[in-house]
Write a protein that binds this DNA or RNA. Structure first.
Lengths: 117, 117
DNA sequence: ACAACTATTCACGTATCATTGAATTATTTG
DNA sequence: CAAATAATTCAATGATACGTGAATAGTTGT
C-alpha cells in the first residue's frame, strides 16, 4: 500500500461517525447491516448516513450489496488488514517498541499456531 | 482510548504530508529529527512544517524538545501503540479475519518469546 | 547590544468537508 | 400501474482544514 492510499484510507476513518459505522460493521461480521439499520442504531439521518457510507466505500473499507429494497454493507477485512500492515510495517522497520504491546493484543486474539519461514 | 480520541488521532495521520513526517520520525527513533531537517527532507516550507508538526503534536503522536536553536521531534511510540490497539481490539472483538495477516506482520517483527497469562 | 539562525505564530485566501431538505432511483406489494 | 418502502443523489449552506507571506520569539556567537 502506497502512502497516499494509506492517507486516504485513514482519512475515511478519521471521523467519529464513520469510525462508529465501521466498528458496527466489523462487529456485524459477514452478515453485515442494512443502511437504514445503521442509521437508526447511530441516530443519523438517512442521507447523512449515505454520504458517510459512500466515503467508507470509496476508501475500500466497506462493501455494498443489494438485498431487496435494502442495501447491506459489510466491512472489508482485507482492506483494513492492509492498512494495519502498512502502519505496523512502518513502525517495525525502525524499532519494535510500538509492536510490543500490539503483539500482545494481536496474539491474544490470533495466537500463532503455525510457523512458516 | 475512546472513539473520539481515536478519530482525532487518525485525523492527524490522515494527510500525506503528516504521515510522511511521522514515518520519518519513527525511522529516526528516539534520537529524533530537528524541524528544519524534516522540512528539508520532505521539501516543505518551515511554516507549513510547523503547522503540520503542531497537528501531530496535539494528537499526541510526536513530542518536542529544544536543543539549542533547534527543536527536536520524536515519535511517541506509546500513543501509536494505543491507536493500533484500539483498531485491532475493534476488529478482534468480532472476527479474527483482519488479525490473521496482521499477526504475521507483527510476529515477523516481534516474535513472541515469552508467554504470560 | 547586534546580527545570524531556527522555528513558530498570525492573518488571510482558497479549498475541501459535513450536514440537510428536496428530489430521484430502485424494489416490493396490492 | 400506483402506493409504500429503502436508499441515494442533488443543491446549497456553514464549518473546517491547508498552505503561505509577513511578523515574532528564542538561541548562539561576536
Amino acid at each position: 500500500m502506497k502512502i497516499e492510499s494509506a492517507a486516504d484510507t485513514l482519512s475515511a476513518l478519521a471521523h467519529g461517525g464513520r469510525l462508529a459505522i465501521f466498528r458496527l460493521l466489523v462487529k456485524a461480521g459477514p452478515a453485515g447491516l442494512a443502511a437504514g439499520d445503521i442509521a437508526r442504531k447511530l441516530d443519523t439521518q438517512p442521507n447523512t448516513m449515505s454520504a458517510q457510507l459512500l466515503v467508507l466505500s470509496n476508501a475500500g473499507l466497506i462493501r455494498a450489496r443489494r438485498d431487496g429494497r435494502s442495501i447491506i454493507y459489510t466491512a472489508d477485512f482485507d482492506r483494513m488488514g492492509e492498512l494495519l500492515q502498512f502502519l505496523t510495517k512502518d513502525c517495525c522497520g525502525g524499532r519494535p517498541e510500538i509492536c510490543a504491546p500490539l503483539a500482545q493484543t494481536v496474539n491474544a486474539c490470533c495466537p500463532p499456531k503455525k510457523r512458516r519461514a
